[in-house]
Design a binder for these strands. Structure first.
Lengths: 308, 308
DNA sequence: AGTTTGTCTTTTGTATATAAAACGCAAGGG
DNA sequence: CCCTTGCGTTTTATATACAAAAGACAAACT
């Protein structure tokens, strides 16, 4: 009734630790392991038992020692290390953003549960979350209305994003000199320059860097609602990146350049320049998003079919 | 396994319709009733059966006729007409905002379910909602952290509220002359003047008027995220009003005056004046909220006890 | 043709069941 | 003493069960 994804993830984690240990060495204590993997000691114990059964660890007067080197296929496949809930969230968003259904479509919990092979419990847990994202709307005692990934959606998100990011960026200059944010920002700047140098091969690393920059800016606003909102943007970017691979390198180059102007302005505490660079970057980002949404609306990938 | 609050609410609704009908008159069709009460025909049918069993309606060749005048105690009590979910939401917020627990307290779903006499299903449905409100924070696979109704909470809410309300107010002046918003705003203005005249007796009507004004402004931003956010503010106001009755009349008077300046500026499409009035009003509202939160933090009503 | 009602099917709201994971206490060892 | 492990208890994640409500279709009635 409850998956054991936590177990499998922890098992793989311990396996990695084993791999970095010389043969015959003693494993860290249950407490240390549970802390470093951020799970309960109970789970660690179960994992230890599993590793012993697999012949990887051996008990010796209380302590556990590495008795054989773990092979790559001792690990559980990555697909099994995510909870049902996380899997459904991902698959649902992919399905939505892939344009399988159009605006105005009605979603019923039962049907979604069938479609994704889970219980309605999980589905009912996620629907409010997607409502928070502005993707669906509830009809009381009835189905949910899909509002669509439309230009309106993008514009509304960006209207808010601009307000929040500008506000956060402005608060950046008020940070005390000894705030950790300055150091982090300088690191991010260096990473930008290094990525720019190796852009031909490494442009795939950009999304992560992008997120770190914007989160660093948003952090300084010190406002839970502003930080929360960035989760929506982050989600949108993550999935949007998947279906809009066109011109990715060129767009990455532009973004890196704009980011650098933005970062320099932040580091110089130059309010005017911050405003200018921030607006410019968000304008580009918004039109990229709009372009890919409009493109997608013209070429619906599959009008309305189950992904299975 | 499923409450019948919808039935009871509809029953009371039909009872009210019966009450407005002369004896022996024919009831509206099932379809009409289901439309006017916004429930399914299935529910209406069940209600009709109930009303017949209670001797209020009598069947006569297909049609239903009023056979006796409904008495006040034919109706179900109001407490039974709310779904379990709605009841729990209300009780939970009251409990939180009443200061029964302090910031840093850990909430477990099981305990809350016990406390409110429901299943964990309902609790688990609501916790993410309160997270959206910024009141709690999730620890994965574990309890929820209550962040508290603190001055920080109020300030963060107001920082966003100011951005959103100013943005919406500015977009008001771009509305076309024939937009319904102008008419609605003039009505609201009239209501303000009338309430101001009878303030000594009617100040209790203010919260509703307040909400209508701000929603009308927010509507014009035409942004789902801005509208959504107003739900948080609305919740906070609703419950805050309950525990801060002090000086209510005086505060209402101030708010009415500030609102009128704001409304006049909006109707005149005077951007400068809109900005000024809006900021002034939000400043007052924010400090009222801060004052009552600080007051409450000094006098904790009951450190940590179950309300039952 | 368009309503109205009777009947049957599907979906939603809520409680409960159960394996996995977290939590907490006590005893043992450096 | 503080850290470790062993073990019993509680809580969480997920599936399932089932009454209430919604939805769908056809026969009856204007």
């Amino acid at each position: 009734m409850k998956g054991n994804a936590v177990y499998k993830r922890s098992y793989n984690g311990c396996l990695a630790i084993c791999g970095s240990l010389p043969l015959g060495a003693e494993m860290p204590s249950e407490n240390e392991l549970s802390q470093s993997l951020a799970v309960s000691r109970t789970t660690i114990r179960t994992v230890m038992t599993g590793l012993e059964a697999a012949g990887i660890l051996r008990r010796e007067s209380g302590a556990r020692r590495l008795s054989r080197r773990p092979a790559p296929d001792d690990a559980f496949p990555d697909t099994q290390t995510l909870s049902t809930s996380a899997t459904v969230e991902r698959r649902f968003l992919e399905w939505i953003l892939d344009g399988h259904i159009g605006p105005g479509h009605l979603l019923t919990a039962t049907e979604l549960a069938r479609q994704f092979g889970t219980s309605t419990t999980i589905i009912r847990e996620h629907l409010p979350h997607f409502q928070h994202f502005g993707l669906i709307e509830r009809r009381p005692n009835s189905a949910w209305l899909f509002k669509g990934v439309t230009p309106a959606f993008a514009n509304e998100i960006y209207e808010v994003r601009e307000m929040f990011e500008l506000r956060a960026a402005r608060s950046f200059i008020d940070l005390p000199d000894d705030s950790g944010s300055w150091r982090r920002m300088r690191t991010i700047e260096a990473e930008h320059r290094s990525l720019l140098a190796s852009i031909d091969t490494d442009y795939g690393l950009f999304p992560d860097l992008d997120e770190r920059l914007h989160r660093t800016v948003h952090e300084t606003a010190d406002n839970r609602f502003i930080k929360d909102f960035y989760d929506i943007i982050s989600m949108l970017f993550h999935y949007n990146a998947q279906w809009d691979a066109e011109d990715e390198k060129q767009r990455t180059f532009t973004a890196l350049t704009e980011h650098l102007a933005y970062i320099e302005a932040l580091l110089r505490r130059d309010l005017k320049a911050i405003d200018r660079a921030c607006r410019q970057h968000l304008k580009t980002a918004r039109s990229n998003l709009l372009r890919s949404i409009e493109l997608r609306m013209k070429v619906p990938s599959a009008p309305d079919a189950s992904p299975a």
